[in-house]
């Protein structure tokens, strides 16, 4: 079963060159996008979206999560999910303090 696994998701170097190329393009795209003013939350969201895309590329292909066991997929996502908990609850406090009304 493991051999099947391996052969299914075995990529040649050519494929990894393509991933690298995509990552490099996205790096300079995010640089370019930063020069355009999309308005308050949108600039940040565009940058974040590109960063998440790049991270997903690295995690799925360089780190072979695509085709890995479900447990490894879960741990790959789990850490980031837990971070969202941390961010969400701290923000729930900070953004709702008196004097923070402009955020709503």
């Amino acid at each position: 079963m493991s051999e099947q696994h391996a052969s299914e998701h075995e990529h040649g170097l050519k494929f990894y060159w393509l991933v690298l190329f995509a990552l490099l393009v996205l790096t300079w795209v995010t640089y370019g996008a930063a020069l355009i003013d999309f308005g308050h939350p949108w600039s940040d969201l565009v940058a974040l979206a590109i960063a998440v895309t790049k991270a997903t590329l690295v995690v799925s292909f360089f780190m072979h999560v695509k085709g890995a066991t479900s447990m490894i997929k879960m741990s790959a996502v789990g850490g980031f999910f837990w971070l969202i908990i941390l961010f969400a609850f701290v923000l729930a406090d900070v953004l709702t303090r008196p004097g923070m009304r402009e955020f709503f």
Binding site: I72, A76, G79, W82, L83, L86, F87, V90, L95
Partner: peptide, 30 residues
């Protein structure tokens, strides 16, 4: 399988470790 799972759990730990810094960043940035 054990060593990969162990490594991934270590990376989860790393995500949370840097996560504390990113949390500070997100708060002060906002």
């Amino acid at each position: 399988e054990s060593s990969f799972l162990g490594m991934w759990l270590f990376l989860v730990q790393e995500v949370m470790f840097f996560g504390g810094l990113f949390c500070c960043y997100v708060i002060y940035r906002s």
